[in-house]
């Protein structure tokens, strides 16, 4: 593994303790050797090609150790290495180890340094890597957070490429909450770009997606998010919600009884919850109670206590 560089003159620092320790890890030889050399070079503050190489070995074994990343960055700076090459290297490491989240912060650091140096940097350079990472795990939190950072850093709000990317992710999986969250930021994160047309278009878009799959927390959250931001009255959604909760508008007199429950035909607990909110706002107390009862008894019984509580605080 380390044969491309010569470390014969380096005496590895001993990492194995002679005394028994709490939670002692039985290190294998490779780990002991690599860490031993890494520590010896760090102790000597050696900033060299072979030091750079050993940080790679170290990161492959222990990506969560910040000191190695820090040392690596110091070596790069001292040797005045090309930071674009380093971005390529990070890419390899990212693809090899999906769970390695330290790389994203490191990558941000590199990008900032590149910009600082006056070099051109196109955010679109990042797209193939991000695409490939999401192929592996379409809900990778770190990858989406990095993507969010790119949008902010390079002012990609409403950028056609980014919008079509997020459209495609929602088309692939309408329940992908990460994609919906990203869409929310992309379209509403810059207030100066938000107007009535956008709000109306997005309400139509998300309604269409809800019709496709009514029992989906992500799309309902998106809808509610738009309403909250735009300070629109939830009452507007009454008709829309009713199509997923048939029978809810009727039989007010029999509210909160078993008989009325049988008539309701609910396709989405989220529609029912939204209706309950609307009825509370509109002081339609019997209807609100009925919606909560349906949630507690039939459509979302795991939250029975919560729905009963909501019912009890209606005034």
């Amino acid at each position: 593994m380390t044969d491309t560089y010569n470390y014969d003159d380096v005496k590895p620092v001993q990492i194995r303790s002679d005394e028994p320790e709490l939670c002692q890890i039985l290190y294998d030889d490779e780990y002991e050797h690599t860490m031993g050399i890494l520590l010896a070079l760090m102790r000597d503050k050696e900033y060299s090609e072979r030091a750079l190489h050993i940080t790679e070995q170290g990161i492959e074994l222990l990506a969560s150790h910040y000191t190695i990343w820090y040392y690596r960055f110091e070596i790069l700076t001292t040797l005045n290495k090309n930071l674009f090459d380093e971005l390529d290297w990070v890419e390899q490491i990212a693809l090899e180890n999906q769970k390695n989240y330290q790389i994203w912060n490191y990558r941000q650091l590199l990008v900032e340094k590149i910009i600082e140096s006056g070099a051109d940097f196109s955010p679109y350079r990042e797209y193939p890597l991000l695409g490939e990472m999401l192929e592996e795990d379409v809900k990778n939190h770190h990858v989406w957070s990095y993507r969010k950072w790119l949008v902010e850093r390079f002012d990609l709000f409403h950028a056609p490429k980014e919008v079509s990317f997020v459209n495609s992710k929602i088309d692939e999986d309408v329940r992908n909450n990460s994609a919906w969250t990203h869409r929310h930021f992309l379209l509403f994160g810059k207030p100066s770009l938000v107007d009535e047309t956008l709000v109306n278009d997005e309400v139509e878009y998300v309604k269409m997606k809800i019709e496709l799959c009514p029992q989906n927390a992500s799309s309902w959250t998106y809808l509610l998010g738009i309403y909250r931001r735009a300070k629109k009255p939830l009452g507007e959604l009454h008709e829309f919600c009713l199509q997923f909760a048939n029978g809810m508008a009727e039989s007010e007199s029999t509210a909160d009884t078993d008989e009325s429950q049988d008539k309701a035909e609910v396709k989405s607990s989220f529609a029912l919850e939204m209706l309950a909110r609307i009825y509370v706002e509109q002081k339609e107390i019997a209807k609100a109670k009925r919606a909560y009862t349906l949630l507690a008894d039939k459509y979302d019984p795991i939250r029975k206590n919560y729905w009963e509580y909501q019912k009890s605080v209606i005034v």
Binding site: C23, I25, L26, D28, A63
Partner: peptide, 12 residues
């Protein structure tokens, strides 16, 4: 008491 070598990745 002790953890196997696969716990190395938890050394940090």
């Amino acid at each position: 008491q002790s953890l196997p070598s696969r716990a190395q990745e938890e050394d940090s």
